[in-house]
Design a protein around this nucleic acid. Structure first.
Lengths: 162, 162
DNA sequence: TCTGAAAGTTTTCATCC
DNA sequence: GGATGAAAACTTTCAGA
């Protein structure tokens, strides 16, 4: 069970926004921006980590500079929504390194899955394994990414007018 | 125009994989893993940056710990694919902070757009502004995210069997 | 291009407010 | 919670191979 996070104040929202856009700044730079000492900034960041608000820090690569990368958005509907089958389907996806994103959604489809493969043969193999061979996929369609216009963004840490 | 990247060797693939999963390691830790001195690791990372392979370093938040966040995947088809209208549509999306991801895709839809809003009223307002008020959106559908099973992943830096 | 060491910064931590 | 300052750790740079 995740820790219930204490309320975030203005400085927290500011810091989390800064960190989501660029995690390369030093504690001093962050402190200068939010008017706090480096150690005060550190204590806050340590708290976000402890409470799980911060999941992790990563380096994002530019797909444009990796010409072999073939991104695809797959829309999937399962045969039955029994918990057991859902779990099996999810596990299969989570175990595949090619699966960039998985969203369990409501609406016309059950899942949105973003695949990052190295070329079409790789994609075909992965899609076949994940979707055709799965016992409970009713239907799926693949939208190949022609241009990854934006591939990551920040999450809002609070309500819009707060 | 982006620099054409020189070929990546084994160590490069290894390093880029490590950095994509966790950018918090020190040069020494990375060096221990790939059997290189800290300065050799640094020279390589500097090179990735210079060539644009590394886009940026960011902190990822856990949507589960931001209970107000409402994620949605929107599928959009435009009225006409004229370059001018495409550009206007893209600019609108790129200017909106709520737009997490934008994929220009082939297939049943023209664009896949991931929105991160703070609650349903916010989402409704954003979707209305981006899709209903746009002059060239023929149709769109919204898949609300019930569970963000996985929200980020690494890109493959090379072909699968290389 | 690597290593290893020196110089410069940043992070960490103990202490006090 | 926050500030400060000193110690530890890390990054950066550069000479030498």
């Amino acid at each position: 069970m995740p820790n219930s996070s204490p309320a975030l104040d203005e400085v927290d929202h500011h810091l989390l926004g800064l960190l989501q856009r660029d995690s390369g700044r030093t504690l001093r730079e962050l402190g200068d921006i939010v008017a706090l000492s480096p150690s005060a900034v550190k204590r806050r960041i340590d708290r976000y980590r402890k409470h799980g608000v911060i999941a992790r820090q990563v380096t994002l690569l530019d797909p444009i500079h990796l010409p072999t990368v073939l991104l695809a958005v797959c829309l999937v509907t399962l045969e039955r929504e029994s918990s057991r089958h859902q779990q099996a389907f999810r596990k299969r996806l989570l175990d595949a390194t090619e699966v960039q994103q998985i969203y369990d959604v409501s609406g016309d489809w059950d899942y949105v899955v973003v695949l990052a493969c190295s070329g079409m043969p790789h994609h075909t193999e992965v899609a076949h394994r994940l979707f055709n061979e799965a016992p409970n996929v009713r239907r799926y369609t693949t939208l190949f990414v022609l241009d990854p216009v934006r591939t990551s963004g920040a999450l809002p840490t609070r309500a819009p007018n707060t």
